[in-house]
Design a protein around this nucleic acid. Structure first.
Lengths: 370, 370
DNA sequence: CAGTTACGGGAAACCGCTTTCAGAAAGCGC
DNA sequence: GCGCTTTCTGAAAGCGGTTTCCCGTAACTG
């Protein structure tokens, strides 16, 4: 493919005989720093200094350079800059699925922080394929990204995870910074981690406070600490009231809306119905809510439902969802801050963020006859 | 809310003089192609060729190079590659707000297409600040991105839009490709454009078919063709039944959930209530639904509500929203395809995608006593 | 007024890779 | 066995900047 000569208007008959590709202007070659320097009547070195302000430059020269740059429409070549200065201002963000509202909320904070720091964000979506995740880390390494953010990135397969870890370690050894949001990792990386246990325990207490005694939990892949912590925390909360969670009331599903839906369906198939269901993520809860409705159950009259995360969407549901609210946007923001601060020679560390139980209409005291 | 510094509990003593920054491995300098070539006993040129497969290389040499690269953990420097070959594989995507579900759905397709083409996506969020939009185009120019995608990017201010246009044109003149999704632009750019008029007209017909005669529309900024086309299409549909839309029944709000909410509130303040409301985007409809509920109106018993776009979220609402469904993910995918195809010397063009009316429970025949 | 010092600008090396260009080696026909 | 192609390989010239190093000049010192 014709990667070169991207601007060949003059090639008459190579490809199809289409004409008029370029509407206006000649195929002028890109304006380089040298060109700017020449029209300003200074050396490239001076032009560079004037543009970047790294060193004092006589005011009149500086003005001439700036004028020339402006006149020529000079745009520095970021690749050349990166190469020469061996530094750049890009960060990579890797997530499973850009359309997941959980990710969207976090990345909103990431984008804000990136804007504040004048960083360019390279976003990669793995579609939950582990090899893709590794490939992206590799690509970001090639780009010499200043930091890589793994958002809610969990690989369930042990061996894939190993290669991911080694890739990340290699990246760190070459000076890169890794920050993980909302996942525990064995690596020494900056981490923004919700208080999953405590949050789930608090939620359990709140639900107990409503009078519930019969619970079920819809969980995700057990290997993820997010799941196990929330489950453990919830169990701990129930235990305080002497309540145990029977095995058959813990249903595992995929970490998606449909996973929640299917888990809920499976639960209902049992016949015996808990009075209250906790889905370990809001996204799963959304699916569960739909499933309950399909089965003719009213929430919260027939069954209470609670989630975790407080993605914006759950406020629009009917009924709005009780959940453990996490400052998702702030978490994304923190991740960048952490990674950047780390650059200044800090050792990696974990920032824990608390969740807050928000009782909404999806939970209510159990029906008397329940 | 405290977007910054969310919850740092672990701060030991702010800027303490920490040691032991690099946990393992010496600060080995990055492995270059030359190093690979040296350990393979060939010239850098050959190493490059072996790695990239641009030219035939004797099999044993090729093997040695590959082995050396693997052993040394060689990762090419993308900047150097880009500089030397004056080409790269990055595309830029500019949107208002990454957490907007409309964007999320589209960008999901973008990411998929990017993965297929082995492209790296640089994502920029403008937060609806026009200067930011321009700044990002400039940054993407500096990065020599192969293409820039503008997703639902509309600037309401004329003068800002002019500078954006000139920036984009300059980019095109230097060989860049611009693709716009879901916005009409005067520039000669590749465009993926929904059939907003036809979709809205079809929706109007469907609503008329339910028996409605009293309508209101919640619109966005009038300068955006998305808005004006949908409004005009809706009007045209109503006109077929001899119905006109009174001025006071067309309320303008921001293109957001809250904008829809506020517009709905404003509408209700009028006292006289239409039997059916059309929000020009689903996102606005979500806000409107909430507003109706706050005012004690039942949807669809008291008032019907329809949207446009079919973002995934509206299926989870109660009632699910009637809307004009757009293949959002496919649109994002197309945008990349369009931009890439364009590189091969095609002139820019417009791809129109049809919307399909999906009647859900948020619309019903008007109440008899209406 | 001579001797330093400080300051700012230019030449050139270099960042890490790709890609001509030309030469060496190998293959071929006669 | 000789001359001509055909294949590969290596040397070297960039790609477009940044930055070191050095030098000329102006400013400062006694």
């Amino acid at each position: 493919m014709g990667e070169l000569g991207a601007t060949n208007r003059t090639l008459p008959s190579t490809e199809t005989p289409e004409r008029g590709v370029r509407p206006l202007g000649p195929p002028r070659s890109p304006v380089t720093l040298h060109a700017v320097a020449r029209t300003a009547g200074v050396s490239p070195a001076t032009a560079s200094r004037a543009l970047n302000g790294t060193t004092r430059v006589r005011e009149d020269l500086r003005a001439r350079v700036l004028a020339a740059a402006d006149e020529l429409g000079y745009i520095p070549n970021a690749h050349a800059q990166a190469l020469a200065s061996s530094s750049n201002n890009t960060v990579g963000v890797i997530c499973h699925d850009v359309s997941d509202p959980y990710f969207a909320a976090i990345s909103s904070g990431v984008m804000r922080a990136a804007a504040e720091h004048e960083l360019l964000v390279m976003l990669a979506s793995t579609f939950r394929e582990p090899d893709r995740e590794i490939a992206y880390v590799s690509m970001l390494r090639a780009q010499r990204a200043r930091a890589i953010l793994l958002i809610a990135s969990g690989i369930e397969d042990r061996s894939w995870e190993r290669s991911l870890d080694s890739e990340l370690t290699a990246y760190q050894n070459s000076g890169g910074r890794v920050a993980v949001v909302s996942r525990h990792r064995s690596l020494r990386v900056d981490t923004v981690l919700p208080e999953n246990r405590a949050g789930a325990t608090a939620l359990a207490r709140a639900l107990l406070g409503l009078g519930h005694r019969e619970f079920a939990v819809l969980t995700g892949p057990a290997r993820l600490t997010t799941v196990s912590d929330r489950l453990a925390g919830f169990r701990a909360g129930l235990a305080e009231a002497g309540i145990r969670l029977p095995r058959h009331r813990v249903i595992t599903g995929a970490f998606t809306r449909d996973g929640g839906h299917d888990a809920a369906v499976q639960l209902l198939r049992h016949g015996d119905r808990p009075s209250c269901v906790f889905a370990v993520t809001d996204v799963m809860a959304v699916g569960a809510l739909a499933a309950f409705r399909e089965h003719g159950l009213r929430v919260p009259e027939d069954i209470s439902l609670a989630g975790f995360d407080d993605i914006p969407l759950v406020r629009e549901l009917t009924p709005p969802l009780t959940t453990v609210a996490l400052p998702l946007t702030a978490m994304g923001h923190s991740a960048i801050a952490l990674a950047l601060r780390a650059e200044r020679g800090r050792r990696s560390r974990v920032e824990r963020v608390a969740g807050e139980v928000v009782l909404r209409a999806s939970t209510a005291p159990p029906a008397p006859g329940g």
